[in-house]
């Protein structure tokens, strides 16, 4: 064997081992979510289910229908439980609906407003642009916890507390990170295109709408996907601004579910967690190229 091949195999072994480490918690989550309660409390390591042939039945019970009280093989009566989706006191379909409402309103506002603001920083030439851009970047450093208390009272004054508005209205006013990302992308679009359009009599708005926006579609998709994951994951915002279960989002609902159950039926908790993260993982699988090196980070260099 050539020494180079040996090195390759060594690297491959390391990568596979490390990847297994990174994947283990997720595999553990899925495998627990597919177990009946009585198999969760066994002390053997069981990434593989105890009764693989009944996985379909357990999936249905944990995620959807629940299980009635039953008598097991030893003649012991086992208490039944509610499935995650049909649970009476924690309404996951409603949490999903709320999250989707916030996601649609928030993502569309963020993409549109950031696209406009980035044009002002990249393609409109005006005195003071550099200063304002520096201020815009500096606001990335302001942590949400630093403003959550006054924001709460501000939104209360607006009459927004107890509604979903605090979670999506601010998204219509752009965000420094996304503006930065789009500005870097716009700067790569040759100025000659704008000049030619200007000679043809297009205004700034015409250039933005007909030339820059269509060309920037990939970058806009990156912003959309990034912001969608942000909305899906936000916890502190909903925790501070939402007070009623009927407008909880998934992230907040998941924590509420854990609280309700005191953290014991791990198969159900893992089913609820799987339910919350699955849409994100599917989205990632479909839009991988936006996340892995390439387009998404090409704007970050110098």
């Amino acid at each position: 064997m050539k020494p180079q091949t040996a090195v390759r195999i060594f690297y491959l072994g390391l990568v596979v081992a490390a990847s297994l480490g990174f994947a283990a918690p997720l595999l553990w989550m899925v495998s627990t979510s597919l177990k009946p309660l009585e198999d969760v409390g066994t002390s053997r390591v069981a990434l593989v289910p105890v009764h693989p042939e009944r996985t379909g039945q357990y999936l249905w019970e944990n995620f959807y229908e629940g299980r009635p009280t039953f008598v097991d093989e030893q003649g012991v009566e086992r208490v039944g439980y509610e499935g995650v989706w049909t649970s009476d006191n924690v309404n996951f379909p409603l949490f999903l609906r709320n999250t989707l409402i916030v996601a649609v309103l928030s993502v569309s506002g963020m993409v549109l407003s950031s696209a406009i603001v980035a044009y002002g920083f990249a393609k409109v030439r005006w005195r003071g642009r550099g200063v304002f851009f520096a201020i815009c970047l500096a606001t990335m450093m302001v942590p949400f916890p630093a403003i959550m208390v006054p924001s709460y009272f501000l939104f209360k004054w607006f009459g927004w507390i107890g509604t979903l508005q605090p979670l999506w209205v601010p998204a219509w006013f752009a965000n420094a990170f996304n503006v930065f990302l789009l500005r870097q992308f716009y700067l790569q679009i040759p100025e000659e295109l704008s000049d030619a359009a200007r000679i043809d009599g297009l205004s700034h708005w015409g250039i933005f709408w007909r030339i820059i926006l269509p060309l920037a579609r990939p970058a806009l998709a990156v912003v959309a996907v990034f912001h969608l994951t942000y909305v899906w994951n936000d916890f502190l915002g909903p925790l501070v601004f939402l007070h009623h279960q009927h407008n909880f989002t998934l992230a907040l609902g998941l924590q509420f579910y854990m609280q309700q159950h005191g953290g014991t039926p791990w198969n159900l908790l893992m089913a609820a967690t799987t339910l919350t993260v699955a849409p994100l993982l599917i989205l990632f699988a479909l839009t991988q190229r936006f996340f892995l090196p390439g387009l998404a980070t090409s704007g970050l260099k110098g």
């Binding site: 304002f132 606001t139 006013f173």
Partner: peptide, 30 residues
């Protein structure tokens, strides 16, 4: 510089307004 300051400010106005209302005011209030 080729465009007026007003034109530039108009383009970045969504961020300016958002920054004022959702960041600057809360920080001062805090």
């Amino acid at each position: 510089a080729r465009d007026g300051v007003a034109c530039g400010l108009l383009w970045i106005s969504p961020w300016l307004v958002g920054f004022a209302v959702f960041v600057a005011v809360p920080i001062v209030l805090s």
